[in-house]
Simulated assay, not measured.
Amino acid sequence: MKALFGQQNSPGEEMTFVFQERENLPPPGDHEVKVQVRACALSWVDTKLLSEIKLKKELVPVGREISGVVLEVGSKVTFFQPDDEVVGILPLDSEESGLCEVILVHEHYLVQKPEKVCWAAAAGTVRDGLRAYTALHYLAQASPGTTVLVLDGASPFGTIAVQLAQHRGARVICTAHSLEDKQFLERLRPPVARVIDVAHGKIDVAESCLEETGGLGVHIVLDAGVKLYSAEDESASKSQLLPHKHDIITLLGVGGHWITTEKNLQLDPPDSHSLFLKGATVSFLNDEIWNLSNVQQGKYLSILEDIMEKLSSGVFRPQLDEPIPLYEAKVSMEIVQKNQARKRQVIQF
């Protein structure tokens, strides 16, 4: 039985991916479930975070969002029984790679998969759904009458965030990074209020949002990273598509919420003063908090259940690439680790 792991020989070096032969698994522990994996979605491995929380090891398990069938349960497992179809996210400290035919998982990381949801869609939506819920339910309340700006709305996460905000009755504005993205967002049903095409850098995001909201500003901003410095200091071409932090502060309405994925966000005193005058807040979106602390385990599992229910009822329609066979997992993971995949990559067994 083979499993995929990531290897980083020295800090800053690109991660390489290797298949390792696994021994046969022991019987499940008291609260463990043995799962036959049917699909596993690929996500970027945050080696810096693993290092910061002292989880860095020579071989890092790859592929944490899984769906599959329960083969065997431990003596104290109460949630599942053999033949149940399940979905979940393996914890950060998991020794198991999701890219393996059979794995052991603690029962508290899994929920039931609805029958009509396919394996690939379940595995491919669970993390983006969790991030969207964390942002639009726990960090800010998307509700009828609010305006939500989702930056890079055609990304896998952006798409789910747009759909959740619309389901909550919010008015949604998106940015598009290419013509294909723009066309995809314009085809969404229900339609988004406005798609701002930033591909050529000629359109001012703040101006467009203020125009769309009659000068009142946006209630909730969900970014996909921001420019921290002026144009001449920015080297990466990808960052040219991102708005400047001042633009986001400008387009925020009074009492607005800025939810950022930028872990190194630096606010200068004038930025803080502008936020103070608006009574606005900045929150950091780190979806790993649910697994880093098990204090809110019940809430976490109810979110996963709700994501599956919304996937089953058609509220969530994820951006998935064609399912990929296991032997191509190495190449796909390299693309994901370089942030070059525009659709969610899912390995199907």
Rank of each mutant, 00 (worst) to 15 (best):
M1D: 05
A3S: 13
F5V: 02
N9H: 11
S10E: 15
G12E: 03
E13L: 07
M15S: 02
T16N: 06
T16A: 05
R22S: 06
D30S: 13
E32F: 11
V35N: 04
R38K: 14
A39K: 00
W44R: 09
T47I: 13
L50N: 02
L50G: 01
S51M: 10
E52N: 13
I53R: 06
I53H: 01
L55G: 01
K56E: 15
K57Y: 11
E58V: 02
P61A: 04
R64Y: 12
G68T: 10
L71W: 05
E72A: 09
K76R: 15
F80Y: 05
D84E: 09
P91L: 01
L92M: 06
S94H: 00
S97T: 03
G98T: 00
L99N: 06
V105N: 04
K116D: 14
A122V: 00
D128H: 15
R131H: 07
H137T: 15
Y138L: 15
A142D: 07
S143F: 12
G145Q: 02
T146A: 11
T147W: 13
L149F: 02
G153Y: 05
A154Q: 05
G158R: 10
T159E: 10
I160N: 03
V162F: 11
L164H: 06
Q166W: 10
H167D: 11
H167W: 15
A170C: 01
A170F: 07
A170S: 14
A170L: 01
V172H: 07
H177F: 12
S178I: 03
K182R: 14
V192Q: 02
V192L: 03
R194L: 15
V195I: 12
I196Y: 01
I196L: 08
I203H: 08
A206Y: 06
S208W: 03
L210P: 11
L210R: 13
E212F: 12
V218E: 09
G225T: 04
E234R: 11
L241F: 03
P243Q: 08
H244E: 09
K245C: 00
D247A: 12
G253K: 05
V254S: 13
G255R: 04
G256I: 04
W258Q: 02
K263D: 13
N264T: 05
Q266Y: 13
P270C: 04
F276A: 01
G279C: 03
G279K: 02
S283M: 09
F284H: 13
W290V: 09
N291P: 10
N291I: 15
N291W: 14
V295P: 10
Q296N: 15
E305A: 12
I307K: 10
M308S: 06
K310I: 08
L311Q: 08
S312E: 15
V315G: 07
Q319D: 12
D321L: 02
D321M: 02
E322G: 04
E322W: 12
E322A: 11
P323M: 06
I324V: 04
L326T: 10
Y327G: 02
A329I: 00
K330S: 03
V331A: 06
M333G: 00
I335T: 09
I335Y: 01
R344Y: 10
I347G: 01
